[in-house]
Amino acid sequence: MLNIKNLTKSYGEKKAVDDLSLEIKNGEIYGFIGHNGAGKTTTIKSVVGILDFDEGTITIDNTDIKDNPIECKRKIAYIPDNPDLYDYMSGIKYLNFVCDIYGISAQDRAERIRKYADLFELTQDLAQPISAYSHGMKQKLAIISAWVHEPKLIIMDEPFVGLDPKAAHILKQMMRELCDNGGAIFFSTHVLEVAEKLCDKVAIIKAGKLIKSGTMDEVKGDASLESVFLELEEVDA
């Protein structure tokens, strides 16, 4: 579904991502962990076509993001680390805008918006302007807007930040459901317990370089993900 080959991105002299390669297959929840400034967001932004990268290739469902960005973006959804949404719109107007862009029919969008807004208990707030939303509500709206057009691949940067425990639980279920139905998820997180329980595969990045990746068992063995992560951080320090 997602294939990253030798991705390199520099900001001036500094290499934010250095020769990173990853493959995410259909049905996989792929966790991406690393300390602050390790290169997670740069990688994610390159994958979703927001950031131009220097070297390497990124293909989504065998389509190159540089050659055909629109085709790639049609298959994915992206949730950034900070849900900056159009504050001047109401929640429902924002969702309808997203549906218009992805060509979702009036009937389908009504059903999906109802389903996900009810799940996240956001239905009663949909007519409110987004400016009146709390951080958690904005995050829920960003999640609904990602799921509403039924993408094949969802890419999320710290998706659990700001969510209440119930919403976080629902999100985890939705992630599993999407992958069970043949989709894929690539997300970054600092919550290692979540990554350990939820992810099929995990990649650890440090100073732009991939230092370990594979199935959860391959990466952590019998230890906890946290201890492996901390150990890897110290070894390379």
């Binding site: 159009y86 001047y88 719109m89 109401s90 429902i92 107007k93 309808n96 805008f97 549906c99 218009d100 862009i101 060509g103 979702i104 029919s105 009036a106 009937q107 969008r109 009504a110 109802r114 239905t123 009663q124 707030d125 949909l126 007519a127 409110q128």
Partner: peptide, 25 residues
């Protein structure tokens, strides 16, 4: 608080959606 009442939304073309968004801005 504005009460939400579900209404059937009209689907717009991409350009119409962008223009509506820009006018709303």
């Amino acid at each position: 608080k504005i009460e939400y009442r579900e209404k059937t939304a009209k689907a717009n073309s991409v350009r119409a959606a962008i223009l509506k968004k820009e006018l709303a801005r």
